[in-house]
Design a protein around this nucleic acid. Structure first.
Lengths: 211, 211
DNA sequence: GATAGTGTCTACAAGAATGTAGATAGCAAA
DNA sequence: TTTGCTATCTACATTCTTGTAGACACTATC
């Protein structure tokens, strides 16, 4: 009966706890999070975890913020990498992959369902809007040769933002329930069906943002 | 201390229980459903509820099916009413309203997150696909005057189905997280912002399904 | 009006989950 | 080495939740 106690610094303990809690949060949701489970994941007893986390409610809240910030960073990076210059097909596909990998859709859905979404740090939309807007104007200038009437700036802006919102909503929903919906609609199953739909959707976006 | 016992038939009791359980399910999700709460809603004690429902798990499962069937009926009716002949603006708006009223988006999201979505009765897509396809061909025949080359039937079908899937996904996500996303993207707040986006999206759909 | 069937209740059992109290042990600084 | 700090543990208390047992009461039927 060798009892090997591992002693962490306060910060290490907190980091490990948050990470494990975020994982459980993603899997089973806030209501199903059990501090004893999280403690076991990290390798400590639940009173020790409480010593660091304060209370269950506090842990859920902290893990929520941690989760959203972590996934936001990863997602935005992927979107930025893909959305800058290349075509929208890559943009949509990479966004979807980032959402999927980090479980961002699930995180957002959990928060929305439990009424915590509003109180969460929001992602920065401004750079995307600016980039998309610039790309649109570039395409238009190239295409028209300057012979078209001056574009209506305001309508353009709303249209660009709407397209980005649509992309966000579609990727979110596609990740969450895409497989089921595509199958129900008779568009096939598995990754191939999703790929086809993503390509179709990217073409649609491209046309909208180019016109 | 007048104890007024109300005696229901087996069927009445079951119906009331299912309805109340579905409401709680929608609000707080499967994990947070407490049979004592549901029993209180209906006006009975929790052992009585168990007598009718069997067990908590059984109740959750039955309420899930009940909920999905009820919302499906209402939603499909609204979509059918709007999607048959009129423009797509009405179609999208009415779908969204139906989703919202019945909490169908929340129900779907709960099921998806807890891994129950696959085992749920699927809505009938065929009539919508057929109607949308017919409408598209009608529009095209009217527009082209018969001078265009014969349309590629297969691509057309995939495109129609894809558009319907996109509409479904968008309405679903818009209901769940639309307010937050629209606000984050700088497209305004409240019902007005949603309305504007719905109109924009409907125009997009219209163009896609008409070409 | 008596009787049978069963919907409903009260009381209790058992377990799970959060949180507290006090002892112990690992680590760093004197 | 010694000492102080605190991360960690064991043991316990409390509350919440599901589920069971058996008595009671409402309704229909004879």
């Amino acid at each position: 009966m060798t009892k090997t106690r591992r002693r962490r610094t306060k910060e290490e303990a907190r980091a490990e706890i948050l990470s494990a809690a975020a994982k459980r949060l993603l899997d089973a949701g806030p209501d199903a999070l059990r501090i004893a489970d999280v403690a076991a994941d990290v390798g400590m007893t639940h009173p020790t975890l409480l010593h660091h986390a304060g209370s269950r409610d506090q842990l859920v809240q902290d893990a929520t913020v941690y989760l959203m910030q972590r996934t936001a960073a990863r997602t935005l990076e992927a979107m930025q990498r893909a959305g800058d210059e290349r075509d929208l097909d890559a943009f949509v596909r990479e966004s979807l992959e980032a959402f999927r990998d980090e479980g961002r859709s699930r995180a957002i859905a959990w928060l929305a369902l439990t009424g915590r979404l509003a109180g969460t740090p929001k992602p920065p939309w401004t750079p995307f809007v600016a980039a998309a807007q610039a790309a649109r104007e570039r395409r238009r200038a190239r295409g028209s040769g300057g012979s078209q009437p001056a574009p209506q700036r305001e309508d353009d802006d709303v249209s660009t933002r709407s397209a980005l919102v649509l992309a966000f909503l579609a990727v979110f929903a596609l990740d969450l329930i895409g497989d089921t919906v595509l199958a129900d609609a008779g568009l096939g199953e598995g990754p191939a069906a999703t790929d086809r739909f993503v390509r179709w959707f990217a073409r649609l976006l491209q046309r909208t943002l180019t016109e």
